[in-house]
Design a binder for these strands. Sequence first.
DNA 1: TAGATTGTTAATCGATTAACAATC
DNA 2: TAGATTGTTAATCGATTAACAATC
Lengths: 219, 219
Amino acid sequence: MASRRPSGIALPTIRRLPMYASVLEQTRQEGQDHVSSPQIASALGLEPIQVRKDLAAIGVSGQPRVGFPVAELLTAIERFLGWDNLSDAFIIGAGHLGVALAGYHGFSRHGLNVVALFDADPGKVGTRVHGKEILDMGRFADLVDRLHVHIAILTVPDEAAAEVVETAVAAGIRGIWNFTATKLVAPEGVIVERVDLAASLAVLSSKLADMSGRDRGSG
Amino acid sequence: MASRRPSGIALPTIRRLPMYASVLEQTRQEGQDHVSSPQIASALGLEPIQVRKDLAAIGVSGQPRVGFPVAELLTAIERFLGWDNLSDAFIIGAGHLGVALAGYHGFSRHGLNVVALFDADPGKVGTRVHGKEILDMGRFADLVDRLHVHIAILTVPDEAAAEVVETAVAAGIRGIWNFTATKLVAPEGVIVERVDLAASLAVLSSKLADMSGRDRGSG
DNA sequence: TAGATTGTTAATCGATTAACAATC
DNA sequence: TAGATTGTTAATCGATTAACAATC
């Protein structure tokens, strides 16, 4: 049903790329100019063969006995993930989560530049957090257009999510990073990527329950 | 390498359970007492057969022509995910993200009760956020023991993560919900579940790049 | 050279999807 | 009854892992 990945790289591989980048930065800092797949694998708890497959996918090859060139690999990953040039983004929803994300400096190293926050609450509008202005949601469409922003980070209350998405899409937003608990519907051509806390918590709870003997307490 | 899931339910299924719960709550609110797999599937953009497989996994069966019993299904999912009895948790790191999570009321519906926050910054210790106290990290081990808390939510700066995990594990924490960008090492028997924002952002960026023609701009 | 590591080709594994008889 | 839906059994699909020749 989902169309084949145009980039030809599998999503599981793409999700692992930031981990490789992190290990490679460490490696570089240690002054190593090459690193082997067993080294990377052990640092991340993966199998060497999986590392080799992933690195092959982004088009960097290694040398037998020597490993992979650290700098070249890092550049290739950063380039692939778009970390080498910043994309502007608006945060919609200046609640605690929105403010937290606005203050996260790590995003700039990941190609994301938060330009401003938007909120519907007049009490918040006009104030600043982390040096960024909180603007009235009424001005969103205009500013998306004038500043050519393509990415929205959604941190509004769940009930507001559906309506806000409509506004965002109508304004020309092409990618939505969805932090709400709501499954969003978006038209063809608009990418929605969700950070699903409930799913993550479900995995944690389930593993904990398995660990301590699921349901031991009751019955 | 990973041991077989003791609960016998595949992780992808577990990750979808909260979505089913959400749809079922809606359905119940609409007064329907049964719901079919095609109904659920269309609400979530899944295939009916996948819904049936998932629901079979948690042990609820439906009726041909009628569908699945909404209330029973909801109860089964909530029970499986532990939403029916609260587990206490400590948040470690009272920065913006920690405070944001402390203020998220949805967790209580997901079986998680945030008892308090911990921070190493004396300027924060003693204050309250969302009605919850911020305590000195020095008191962590003692309070884990006295209050029998088993879950820690990790929202410290990345550099601090490794050390804090050691402290937490030594104190008796059994499950860590890791919001840092750090891959954590924990001993056998301690569950670490990571909310990997970098991976999620990588997927969004990559899909956006595919959409607009990867690398069209340069070269 | 000897031997560690790469990269290719094949095998395995697990999840998703399809087909269809059973059922109400 | 007619027909929508379930649940089982089989097929497909994609990702991970294994085996091993090639290489430096």
